[in-house]
Design a binder for these strands. Sequence first.
DNA 1: TTGTAAGCGTTATCAG
DNA 2: CTGATAACGCTTACAA
Lengths: 341, 341
Amino acid sequence: MRTSRAGAGRDGVTIGKVAEAAGVSRATVSRVMNGLATVDPELVRRVREAATRLGYEPSTVARSLALGRTGMVAIVVPDLENPMFQRVLHGLTDAAGEHGHRLLVASSNENVREEVVLAAEARRRCDGLVLCAPRMPTEELIGLAGKLAPFVLVNRQVPEIPAPSLAVDHAAGIRAIVAHLLALGHGRLAYLAGPETSASNRDRLEALRGTSGRFELVELRCGATFADGHQVADQVLRERATAIVAYNDLVAFGALSRLHELGVEVPGQVSVVGFDDIPFARYTTPPLTTASVPQSELGHQAWQRLRALLDHRTPDPDVHFVPRLEVRGSTGPAPGALRYI
Amino acid sequence: MRTSRAGAGRDGVTIGKVAEAAGVSRATVSRVMNGLATVDPELVRRVREAATRLGYEPSTVARSLALGRTGMVAIVVPDLENPMFQRVLHGLTDAAGEHGHRLLVASSNENVREEVVLAAEARRRCDGLVLCAPRMPTEELIGLAGKLAPFVLVNRQVPEIPAPSLAVDHAAGIRAIVAHLLALGHGRLAYLAGPETSASNRDRLEALRGTSGRFELVELRCGATFADGHQVADQVLRERATAIVAYNDLVAFGALSRLHELGVEVPGQVSVVGFDDIPFARYTTPPLTTASVPQSELGHQAWQRLRALLDHRTPDPDVHFVPRLEVRGSTGPAPGALRYI
DNA sequence: TTGTAAGCGTTATCAG
DNA sequence: CTGATAACGCTTACAA
């Protein structure tokens, strides 16, 4: 005997009571509730009446058990505070919501160990998963792929895994940024590096090193937050870099803020570039030049792919979003440099 | 015959298979999986072995049905894009997560009709609800209270409802803001009003009117977003107000941005005050003076209350968070006014 | 068109 | 300490 305090039928009104009240079988109530056409209009009326009178609400849990699906999908993110993930979350919520699916959100707070547990646990409560920039090591991810399917990968690519993947072409973003800075005459760039575990950080760093040769690159270990960027700005000045390429917008904001405190002019003395184009990027002073990533679009597309998987259809091919360089006020000619373009 | 593609046991490994493989009953497997001490160590070993060998994962859905609880709570917000709600969400996720509860998020996108459906639906999937600044009319909310319980109300008070409520003392925040502006010599304030359906907007407006008499109040219909604030800034200038009290930080940012575009000095010519203190408030130029609301704390506290309810304990008493006025750079003496303090 | 009954995968009661 | 067995509330062949 349970407390009857369940997630449904909690008021004790089950399909059985309704059936009884309407003088029909539970099967018929079920049919009516699900709009199955094959029911006598008169019975439909009686069932409807009984249902509303009793305040009947079908138990989603029982339904899920019987149907073998929950109508929920989960998104696993490393950091809910990050505007980047918030937007993906938003896009995904809206898209899935339109198709009657609810969203479970799980944040690992950058903790890799927790992330694998969360992901597995979330998967068991839902029909599918969106893994957003998973921090877990590739090996581990591959090992878990079976357990987690169906899922789609956002912002992380693992060729060994058959899951759809929505990625951002970080390298292209970096190349655009570099081209822009070179055109402005910058010759010494400081890269404020993100978390070492972050795949996107590795991508960006590699791309930078790849395009190097036409400029000096100073790599500064930093992080992914405003505070990180704020803290590292002093080093940039000591290194005499004329332009900052930040791991992401948050870091760029931090640097911007610190430079402002120090009375360093942006872009007069130092140019600053971010990555992501989170909503506030356009509103800083000066507005941030950044590589724009369509985050909520990522959420939408993730849902499309996941839905295809759930429907046993073939998902659209993977996409590589190429960031669009959003040139705003935070970049300008290098001090004392000729402007080439 | 189902597809066996469920949210659990999807690989077909049920408690029964494990029982069979281990040569015990399902009851025993259940006991082992739940750490019930009353099992022979040898059997425990066999069950464990079989479970891992088969890759058994208990079905959360079946569990929920049997137990009458889901281990999930839902949060219903009007706008996922709003940093305010994002932070509450974050606080709630973390707090609930620590107690093994997962979060379902439902966003109504400011649509009242959808909100009531969402809330009811979300409630049926979860053990409890956090209603964040619900937009639905008081009457309707009262009518739904039975269906939705247990739930806690964030940022909305309805005395007729027995649910715990976590509120922000908007009036106190407004009074602090007004006092600050008066001390700076401002005599004509423009209030950029939020959504008419928003209870917090009404509170703020009332408080403003209440403290009025010592200054002229210009009420401008605005909204809750950056764009709204941006758009309405011109009117403020036409109205010759020397200070802006924005419905929230987002609106304040918008106004700030527009003023910046127009070359209007802040706070030299116009002072601007926000409400909420979202993370970016300290990073605008100039940094935004605002009434600071401990948003993620709201999330934590909401969880505390909800948990008490779920455990059939008496929740801590309601709290009224009194916003702390965060004086930053966006406010200054009224142009040509004596500064009184 | 309607009802009967057998699941869905757990947990809990109650004998043994 | 262990194992039948009956819930939990719903869906869906299959039969009538």
